[in-house]
Write a protein that binds this DNA or RNA. Sequence first.
DNA 1: ATTTATTAAAATCTCGAGAATTTATGTTGA
DNA 2: TCAACATAAATTCTCGAGATTTTAATAAAT
Lengths: 236, 236
Amino acid sequence: MQKNTLAGDSNVPEAKTLVESAYHALRRDIIEGRLAPGAKLRVEHLKNDYGVGAGTLREALSLLISDALVVSQGQRGFRVAPVSLDDFADITRTRVMLECEALRQSMAAGDDAWEGELIVAFHRLSKAEERLGNAAGEGEWEERNKIFHEVLIAACPSRWIKHFLSILYQQAGRYRHLSISLKPLPRNVHTEHEALFNAVMARDAEKATAIMAEHIELTFRSIEALPEELRQGATA
Amino acid sequence: MQKNTLAGDSNVPEAKTLVESAYHALRRDIIEGRLAPGAKLRVEHLKNDYGVGAGTLREALSLLISDALVVSQGQRGFRVAPVSLDDFADITRTRVMLECEALRQSMAAGDDAWEGELIVAFHRLSKAEERLGNAAGEGEWEERNKIFHEVLIAACPSRWIKHFLSILYQQAGRYRHLSISLKPLPRNVHTEHEALFNAVMARDAEKATAIMAEHIELTFRSIEALPEELRQGATA
DNA sequence: ATTTATTAAAATCTCGAGAATTTATGTTGA
DNA sequence: TCAACATAAATTCTCGAGATTTTAATAAAT
């Protein structure tokens, strides 16, 4: 199981080592907001919470710097990466650019097998979206939505674009989590996904990228209106 | 001195901690080819070479994963990231896309102060290029070339694009080093830089991005012809 | 009252040794 | 000769304790 490779860590977070398990646990806690933006990450305290030694935890934190979820500062330890509206806007714009380019390339290169995978991914996502009201189906939808977006660009030959996109997707997911408690999604995401799916299957690159851009920007706009909570990266 | 921040580590590699100094030393040795692509990085052996403890070295290696210069694999230790012609081609294409976009945005947003910095950077680079025949001036040119490219896109407001570009620039530099011993640059780099500079100062975005794209692709084509050395990431 | 200096506490950073896993080696059997 | 298995070596992974540095608290001085 290749890890920390450009290919992407889209697979199961099966941890073969304590460093990896601490890495995954910390990443989840940051993305899901249990560790507040800007919060200080004291090794002495956290090593108890995650049940590992100090050195092991430090290594896990170093790994999280790759994802830009943690920042370190000379002799002053680690902190959760701060958040800001500007940052989220930047993430959104950059994601639109890269994801549209990746989608174009993927549609140009994708063969029948790819189409098959896409159909499966869309079907699984649709099923999850039907029962999205249930509280239990939340994590399920999250996972399948991620896979759907990954499969959409899977046929893009550029490993680097996909690598950067996986980072940005993770970042965007963090912002969504930080705001999901306040504002439930009022849009009909399924309709957007369906339109995107149809345009891709019809190999209409213009239409597909336009929908994709709108789709990404909507997740930004639906959140834009809740500033105070995450302005300047609360120094918790 | 903020480190490991999106803002970029373009400043002096002044190390405030042993981890950082080991990180910088290792990075240099990988980029300059002293640690061969694909080579195994045995902690027990390397901790002597770099004069640090095992845990410290592991942490430095974890940091290098952010730069995609090191890969780790479950319970099987660290390796220098492999290289391939495909990868270099991918890096080049992605860089062209991002750097042209960044340049467009930078030209649109850059004010007088930015123009001033650009003039300084270009002048310093030109001076270094005059005495480029000298063996001593090699590292000097390298540094100033990097700064010139950084200043060109400095006014681009997207921190993420600049972050990704700094990674790609580093990667490209590695490929250049891996091949520089075989093929000295036959092109007149200064002429390219001058044309680029003039187009930017004239605020001609079309022309500037065209030159930039050609400029980046040339560093790829001048290297393309030396495969055997770096195919498939020599398992040294 | 604000600033400066001194002291104490807390946290980070660092190291070397021990446990678990992988890799290499050598032996036995078909 | 080759394959499968057991043993040995090497390496990775992990932990807890000690040295440095930062941060906070307290007291003195302008």
